[in-house]
């Protein structure tokens, strides 16, 4: 009888210990950045300078700023922590026809227009405007 009570105590104690936090999702998002120019021209290559103030791929909450990868054939791949992001830049794009144009993306420049990147894979189209 006493052994049964000891067992009851152990079960009661262990049941109290079973609480815990939820399992968290994967930390990163594989982001595909796709460019869209005003006139539909494809961008052969483009490099976004990280030294130019205003160029940002910034996590709104943590403040971490990522360097844009080199865009080739209208696309670039970037691995970022899942979160809410501000994206904006000025750059010089080399179009498919060989010409170079100054371009700007400002669609996600401020918190009101921040973009949520919350899943493991996301594709984001960046609208480009010509500056010249």
């Amino acid at each position: 009888m006493r052994k049964q009570y000891i067992l009851y105590y152990l079960v009661a104690a262990l049941s109290v210990l079973s609480c815990g936090t939820k399992v968290e999702p994967e930390l990163f998002c594989e982001l595909t950045l796709s460019l869209a120019t005003e006139d539909g021209a494809r961008v052969a290559s483009m490099t976004v300078s990280s030294s130019l103030e205003g160029n940002q791929c910034r996590n709104l909450n943590t403040g971490m700023n990522y360097t844009y990868p080199v865009f080739e054939d209208n696309e670039a791949l970037l691995r970022v922590q899942k979160g809410v992001y501000l994206l904006s830049f000025d750059a010089v794009a080399t179009l498919e026809d060989g010409s170079t144009r100054s371009v700007r993306h400002y669609g996600h420049a401020d918190p009101q227009n921040a973009v949520n990147l919350l899943s493991g894979r996301e594709t984001l189209t960046l609208e480009l405007v010509y500056l010249d």
Partner: peptide
């Protein structure tokens, strides 16, 4: 000890909401 950081949205609608949290 485990620490969880919450991802908050941009609060565009006047309310800041949590989107997810990471360990």
């Amino acid at each position: 000890r485990s620490g969880l950081e919450y991802v908050l949205d941009n609060g565009n609608r006047g309310l800041v909401q949590t989107l997810m949290r990471f360990a």
